[in-house]
């Protein structure tokens, strides 16, 4: 049996999970395609926050080497998650741009962004 700890040590995970659930709810139930996209970005942001809070080590400093703190690695937080998320954010913005471009093309073709209406329009020949 897994023990639950509702104290300070676990609250960050609950916030991340809540954000993920909001994103998933928007992706599942909203009918407007752009709202689905916003849900996807919310989900993505939850993953970013999860990675960033995974880098934290208590009583440690930011990973910029300072003479006063010393050269020992134990004095600094883990730099790898920061680095991975730094690139992931910019790539996420670019892919968001491509997704928005697809939505513009869909709106030009069908004059709507409602997914049920688009499914209906796709079946009938033009």
């Amino acid at each position: 049996m897994v023990e639950f700890d509702l104290s300070m040590s676990q609250y960050a995970y609950f916030m991340v999970v809540l954000l993920m659930a909001i994103g998933l709810y928007a992706m599942l139930t909203k009918r407007n395609l752009f709202k689905k996209l916003v849900g996807m970005v919310t989900f993505q942001t939850a993953i970013y926050i999860f990675f960033i809070q995974g880098a934290v080590r208590l009583k440690s400093s930011v990973p910029i080497i300072d003479e006063e703190i010393g050269m020992s690695a134990a004095q600094y937080v883990n730099p790898l998650p920061h680095l991975l998320i730094l690139t992931a954010i910019v790539v996420g913005i670019s892919t968001l741009g491509v997704a928005a471009a697809f939505l513009i093309v869909i709106h030009r073709r069908f004059k709507t962004l409602d997914d049920q209406a688009i499914m209906g329009l796709m079946k009938e020949p033009d």
């Binding site: 910019v90 913005i93 670019s94 741009g97 928005a100 471009a101 513009i104």
Partner: peptide, 13 residues
């Protein structure tokens, strides 16, 4: 590269 690409995405959208 990032500068050019983001301006490009904005312009095309």
């Amino acid at each position: 590269a990032v500068f050019g690409t983001l301006v490009l995405i904005y312009d095309s959208l």
